[in-house]
Amino acid sequence: MQIWRGLDEVPDDFGRAAVTIGNFDGVHRGHQQVLAALVRTARETGSKPVAVTFDPHPARVHRPDTAPDLIMGIDDRIAALGGYGLEAVLVLHYTLEFAAQTPEEFVRNVFVDGLHTSAVVVGHDVRFGRGNAGDLSTMQDLGRRYGFDVVVVEEFREKDPGPLTEDEGAQRRCSSTWVREALDRGDVHTAAEILGRPHTMHGKVVHGAARGRALGFPTANLDHDSIGHIPSDGIYAGWLVDEAGTRWPAAISVGSNPTFVGVTRQVEAHVIDRPDEAPEDFDLYGQRVAVEFVERLRGMVAYRGPEALVEQMKVDVDQARRILATLAG
């Protein structure tokens, strides 16, 4: 898959493109449905499927103080998009000047002149151009004017088990907002249902206070620049994936650990059943790892002292081990 970081990187001989646009934060199941329709449309029209996305996220440009945390960073987003049969991803640098284009200017510059688009695949809620003035009707009008088809994808919906729904059988449109809501209440299971895979954070393993090691539960601490939406405080079962691609079962702690005073909020993963043959050589420091959240075990609790905390940690590790063994088996 080709990655273009601007229209000037699109090869002159690329040919006709079938295109979709979006932020694709999380590349959730709704996005996946659009991508599948894009690949089908490209095949039917003899075009090449291309996804157009933006960096930074538009919300971070228009309202930086209130923009939501991203579910995944741009590199992870591109990697995820690459798993759905695309020929290319075009990443457009999003600025206030870029955002000032009218809907027609955007379509003409990107779709018509830039990508020689034969078809655009979008959802009913597509918005584009200055002030999000362009909608589906605008896109269809511009398609007729500039000679490209507009393919509309029906919304992908999931049953909503969360507290936002009174009707137990209610359906909700898959969205990045819904993923964030689920993560903010620690419901990583629902987040995974929407995403189609476990929610994942990426970051560099750094040295911490070494309290876990002193208690017999050494942890890999993610640096504070780690990428990915942080779930609510608590203990989770999940996986740590090292730079070699090895997946280690893990008990993951998110929070400030209220048993100890003055601890800042952090994400740390204890690898369960570390290698016996050379435990001192099992060193993750400095590696960029992925931490996948599978199931929330409990909330964060302040214990009366380290002894009580150690006993609870043993229970947490045993529970995480059972959960992950079931999935691995």
Results as ranks from 00 to 15, higher is better:
residue 20 T to A: 11
residue 305 G to A: 07
residue 197 R to T: 04
residue 143 G to E: 01
residue 1 M to Q: 07
residue 259 T to L: 00
residue 287 Q to M: 12
residue 87 E to S: 15
residue 91 V to I: 09
residue 45 T to Y: 07
residue 85 G to C: 06
residue 236 Y to G: 05
residue 139 M to Q: 10
residue 191 A to Q: 04
residue 125 D to L: 12
residue 220 A to I: 02
residue 143 G to V: 01
residue 166 E to Y: 06
residue 149 D to H: 10
residue 195 L to S: 01
residue 186 G to T: 10
residue 32 Q to L: 03
residue 178 W to L: 10
residue 6 G to M: 04
residue 78 I to C: 10
residue 59 A to S: 14
residue 319 Q to H: 15
residue 29 R to P: 00
residue 262 G to V: 00
residue 84 Y to W: 15
residue 245 G to E: 04
residue 302 A to K: 15
residue 137 S to W: 01
residue 284 L to F: 12
residue 239 W to E: 05
residue 84 Y to K: 02
residue 231 P to G: 09
residue 149 D to I: 00
residue 274 R to A: 15
residue 191 A to M: 04
residue 209 A to M: 05
residue 313 M to G: 09
residue 269 A to I: 04
residue 313 M to W: 12
residue 169 G to W: 07
residue 323 I to V: 15
residue 209 A to K: 07
residue 51 A to H: 06
residue 123 G to I: 14
residue 208 G to H: 03
residue 163 P to N: 07
residue 216 G to W: 13
residue 244 A to I: 00
residue 328 A to Q: 14
residue 129 G to S: 03
residue 253 S to W: 11
residue 185 R to H: 13
residue 133 A to T: 13
residue 77 R to P: 08
residue 16 R to H: 12
residue 170 A to F: 01
residue 12 D to T: 12
residue 269 A to E: 12
residue 66 T to P: 01
residue 68 P to V: 06
residue 40 R to D: 13
residue 134 G to R: 03
residue 308 A to F: 08
residue 90 L to D: 07
residue 13 D to A: 12
residue 208 G to F: 00
residue 306 P to H: 08
residue 106 F to Q: 05
residue 159 K to Q: 14
residue 18 A to V: 03
residue 229 H to Q: 10
residue 160 D to H: 08
residue 80 A to Y: 06
residue 140 Q to D: 04
residue 182 A to M: 11
residue 107 V to C: 01
residue 189 H to T: 14
residue 211 R to F: 04
residue 224 H to D: 14
residue 127 R to M: 09
residue 251 A to N: 13
residue 189 H to G: 14
residue 44 E to M: 06
residue 297 L to I: 15
residue 240 L to V: 05
residue 329 G to H: 15
residue 177 T to E: 08
residue 21 I to V: 14
residue 310 V to Y: 11
residue 180 R to E: 04
residue 139 M to W: 03
residue 318 D to G: 15
residue 208 G to I: 01
residue 57 H to M: 10
residue 276 D to V: 12
residue 62 H to Y: 07
residue 158 E to Y: 03
residue 130 R to Q: 09
residue 184 D to K: 12
residue 155 E to S: 15
residue 52 V to A: 12
residue 39 V to T: 13
residue 187 D to R: 08
residue 25 D to N: 08
residue 315 V to F: 11
residue 179 V to Q: 00
residue 120 V to Q: 05
residue 184 D to L: 12
residue 66 T to F: 07
residue 126 V to F: 11
residue 67 A to I: 08
residue 119 A to R: 02
residue 187 D to I: 06
residue 248 W to N: 05
residue 29 R to T: 08
residue 8 D to W: 05
residue 75 D to C: 02
residue 131 G to I: 06
residue 73 G to D: 15
residue 298 R to T: 11
residue 50 V to E: 09
residue 282 F to D: 14
residue 209 A to C: 00
residue 5 R to Y: 06
residue 70 L to C: 05
residue 16 R to K: 09
residue 104 E to K: 05
residue 35 L to H: 07
residue 162 G to A: 09
residue 204 K to D: 07
residue 92 L to P: 04
residue 237 A to E: 12
residue 34 V to L: 15
residue 156 F to S: 03
residue 206 V to T: 12
residue 286 G to W: 11
residue 63 R to E: 10
residue 24 F to R: 08
residue 93 H to G: 03
residue 208 G to Q: 02
residue 167 D to N: 14
residue 12 D to S: 12
residue 292 E to K: 11
residue 76 D to A: 15
residue 8 D to S: 13
residue 268 E to H: 03
residue 308 A to G: 10
residue 185 R to K: 14
residue 139 M to N: 06
